[in-house]
Design a protein around this nucleic acid. Structure first.
Length: 448
RNA sequence: GUGAUUGUAGCUCAGUCGGUUAGAGCGUCAGAUUGUGGAUCUGAAGGUCGCGGGUUCGAAUCCCGUCUUUCACCCCA
């Protein structure tokens, strides 16, 4: 039998893991510094929790898990066959968690969560069927300061990771106001989907699509003029504000965007921009929405590295209405791909944590080495003893391949003298010293 | 789901018009060196040519199907 893994899923080798952990550490450290606390939820949720939360498209991308036990005979509906599904994101399971644990939670509740999610999508560049999300949400507070905090955390993370990005923000209320003022409130979906495509497809094609979908020409004319006057701004701008005057959600949305822009510092690697064409497909968002794209010249990856936004009533369907939340979700795998493509790992994320390896010269010597290794570890130094009395050449090669910086040789000569011979694998220099001196040496080396 | 595209050694790739025994580089392992990695030299292992079917005297090569890869649409992290 030839081993294979399912389409869109991947193995993670040691190098990949150190890199992913490097990214995860950077993100989670920022989350913790802002007071977020970690939770986990199960890989599977009941389908009733997942279905209908991600739009019609989302339901088709859900992995449904076949019921165990005997399957019904004859024609069966999907719910006779499956009542559980793999989680599609971390936000909906979180909303479910909040409702189920409402009596133990003190609001506002700030949590972070790092777990894989699954989508039955067609894989392509930067799109996998299994991938990690790294979410932070605060629920039970409608203060805009939470949005500001999201912006700050995003900036801190991309600064720490040393990737230049653009953080685009918009507000669903602005979009709702736009539909209202264009007199097409019932065409909100078509409007936003078109806006979202503008950057990729261009104005002309999008206009054609709107036209063919039956959006009135008066609305399109107004829209065209508005877009021509306000698109590349980075701030809401006078035209848009003027246009939305008189629409309650529109004015409110503009106010929120302005506050977030005003309150967020603009230092760092995520340049903050208002973008009217940012829509976000997930239909539970109701207020501010966020998206991050890489702006490094050498990276041709166009997908988003982060998404997020405010949802006013995600918990409502589970029986807890009126609890508002905001959250963001880092796409760890995409960040990993971008950083690898840019060579950002070349001088970071070491391959091993082992600092020193003892060469094995045979049973008696290895016994001594075992004792010394124990002392090393008690002193907080990650230490290995090579398991076989193989040729020294092979043992050295192992240390080299695993980027272990020091090799300790403890053979009969050294045992006699009470020292170990220590080789620095980077310089090739070696000298005899006591175990205590070795501990000092490695400690000093770790500081530089 | 729609339309393209890819598949030959662990990796990157050659392989002519269909022709007999499918190659290279890198990597791996062993030796040159019985206590010293990276460099060099020598040698070895490693292939159902993605899988199934068809055409043919003969298929890695041509045809069909299928799976997989990558890409676009769609949607998204």
């Amino acid at each position: 039998m030839k081993p294979t893994i399912p389409k869109g899923m991947r193995d993670f080798s040691p190098v990949d893991m150190t890199r992913r952990n490097f990214i995860l550490n950077a993100i989670c450290q920022v989350y913790r510094q802002h007071g977020y606390r970690q939770i986990e939820t199960p890989a599977m949720e009941n389908l009733s929790v997942l279905e209908g939360k991600y739009g019609a498209e989302g339901d088709t991308l859900l992995y449904r898990v076949l019921n165990s036990g005997k399957l019904p005979e004859g024609p069966a509906k999907i719910h006779d066959l499956s009542e559980k599904g793999l989680r599609y994101d971390l936000t909906v399971p979180f909303a479910r968690y909040v409702v189920m644990h409402r009596n133990e939670i003190t609001f506002p509740f700030k949590r972070y969560q790092v777990q894989p999610v699954w989508r039955a999508d067609r894989p392509q560049k930067g799109r996998y069927r299994e991938f990690y999300q790294c979410d932070a949400d605060v629920i039970g507070s409608d203060s805009l300061l939470n949005e500001v905090e999201m912006v700050q955390m995003i900036t801190e993370v991309f600064t720490a990771l040393d990737i230049r990005t653009e953080l685009r923000v918009n507000n669903r209320k602005v979009l709702a106001g736009l539909a209202e003022k264009l007199d097409i409130p019932d065409r909100f979906m078509e409007l936003t989907i078109g806006l979202d495509k503008l950057e990729k497809a261009g104005l002309e094609k999008v206009m054609d699509e709107w036209r063919s979908r039956g959006i009135p020409s008066e609305a399109l004319a107004k829209l065209e003029e508005l877009l021509a006057n306000s698109r590349p701004a980075g701030e809401p701008g006078g035209h848009l504000t003027e246009f939305l005057r008189g629409s309650e959600p529109g004015e409110k949305g503009i106010g929120e965007v302005q506050s977030v822009l005003d309150l967020s510092g603009r230092e760092g690697n995520a340049s903050l921009k208002f973008d009217l064409t940012l829509a976000r497909g997930l239909n539970y968002y109701t207020g501010m929405i966020f998206e991050v794209k890489c702006t490094e010249k050498d990276s041709q990856f166009g997908g988003s590295l982060l998404g997020g936004g405010r949802y006013d009533d995600l918990t409502g369907v589970f029986g807890l209405p009126g609890v508002s939340g905001v959250g963001i979700s880092f796409g760890v795998d995409r960040i990993h791909d971008v950083m690898t493509g840019l060579g950002k790992f070349d001088n970071r994320a070491p391959g091993t944590v082992t600092r020193v390896m003892f060469v094995n010269f045979g049973e008696a010597e290895a016994g001594q080495a075992l004792g010394m290794a124990d002392r090393m570890r008690l002193a907080g130094i990650a230490t290995e003893v090579y398991p076989d009395a193989a040729k020294v050449k092979k043992q050295m090669s192992y240390a080299d391949a695993n980027a272990i910086p020091f090799v300790a040789l403890l053979g009969s000569e050294e045992i006699k003298s009470g020292n170990v011979k220590v080789k620095d694998m980077r310089s090739g220099e070696q000298e005899d010293m006591t175990v205590q001196a070795l501990i000092e040496k490695i400690r000093k080396d770790g500081e530089t």
